[in-house]
């Protein structure tokens, strides 16, 4: 077999490579690297808008120090973002694996079900947010309230305010105060449901692709050995899915940690995850310096995860 590695001396290939790469490199330098460096510069300044640009004053690390030590918004935002990320991730993974296992079995109409499963994923984020906002409407018009009454979970006159700020399990000893400290509200949990509905199909697709690489013979051998469903799941399926699950885990964590759209559209500034807080500081109050510092902290965290992800990949592709 011919080696994939290109020959060492190939000036013509090198020149062509730079011709092909230059448009992308120039674009990326102009719209990503440049602005990123500028944000880095801004994060060490106090910067306010003025006519024709901004007014900057060097403040050193003050913006970062402020968030770590003084601001009473930063750590609550970190906590609520961590809660959103961890809980969404758990629900998505459990639900995604379960759905993928079902869709991997043989049943009538499988290709149809596999096709429609993509529907939530294709729905635009904004449409998804407004759709669930309407389902969660806290009056007798709301679909979820209607459903609860039809199922006799609620009496006919009771309407739950789904997007309210009450803390779940508030009266339970340790758990209640802990959830309150994390910034958990009923609204946040409902938004997790709405977001999970939209992204689980992606997890299902990735897990399904992973399931198809597991040879059937392993299960047959296990059946002969008398293994039941649970044993096969924990001893064969999950261990062999590990590479796929790791990828899903890292990818989803990065996406979840930067959440902005769905929370801002449904709740505006009343659930301050890091994304919303950054937007509020930078774009509502126009504190460009401290906003840049905040966005850098978010980006650093996500880039840290990206490094984990790249390590997973790069070794797998055999470079």
């Amino acid at each position: 077999m011919i080696s994939r590695k290109p020959r060492k001396r190939d000036p013509e290939g090198r020149r062509l490579a730079w011709w092909l790469l230059s448009p992308s490199v120039i674009l990326i330098l102009a719209v990503v690297i440049g602005p990123l460096l500028f944000a880095f510069y801004l994060s060490f300044h106090e910067a306010e808008p003025m006519v024709g640009g901004i007014n900057t004053r060097f403040v050193g690390l003050a913006n970062y120090v402020y968030y770590f030590a003084q601001s009473d918004l930063f750590w609550p935002a970190v906590r609520v973002t961590v809660y959103f990320t961890v809980v969404s991730l758990l629900v998505e993974l459990v639900l995604g694996i379960a759905m993928a296992l079902v869709l991997n079995a043989k049943f009538v109409g499988r290709s149809f079900v596999r096709a429609i499963i993509l529907l939530p994923w294709a729905l635009p984020t904004v449409v998804n947010a407004r759709m669930w906002e309407w389902i969660f409407a806290g009056s007798k018009f709301g679909a979820l309230n209607g459903l609860m009454k039809v199922l006799h979970v609620f009496p006919p006159t009771y309407d739950q305010v789904w997007l309210g700020f009450d803390v779940p399990f508030e009266s339970v000893p340790v758990l209640g105060p802990f959830l309150k400290w994390m910034g958990v509200t009923r609204a946040l949990n409902m938004i997790i449901i709405a977001d999970t509905w939209k992204v689980t199909p992606l997890v299902v697709l990735l897990v399904l692709a992973g399931l198809q690489t597991i040879p059937e013979s392993l299960y047959e051998a296990a059946t002969v050995d008398g293994a039941g469903f649970w044993r096969k799941l924990t001893r064969i399926t999950l261990p062999l899915l590990k590479p796929v699950l790791l990828v899903v885990l890292v990818l989803r964590t990065m996406e979840l940690f930067r959440v902005f759209d769905i929370i801002y559209i449904i709740m505006q500034y009343s659930i301050r995850v890091l994304g919303v807080l950054t937007y509020e500081v930078g774009m509502k109050f126009l504190h460009f310096g401290s906003g840049a510092a905040l966005s850098f902290l978010v980006a650093l965290f996500i880039l840290g995860l990206a490094l984990v992800y790249i390590r997973l990949f790069y070794t797998e592709e055999g470079y």
Partner: peptide
């Protein structure tokens, strides 16, 4: 993988 929010302020 860079979050858009990190670029919003310099863009603006």
């Amino acid at each position: 993988m860079l979050p858009t929010i990190a670029l919003v302020i310099p863009f603006f």
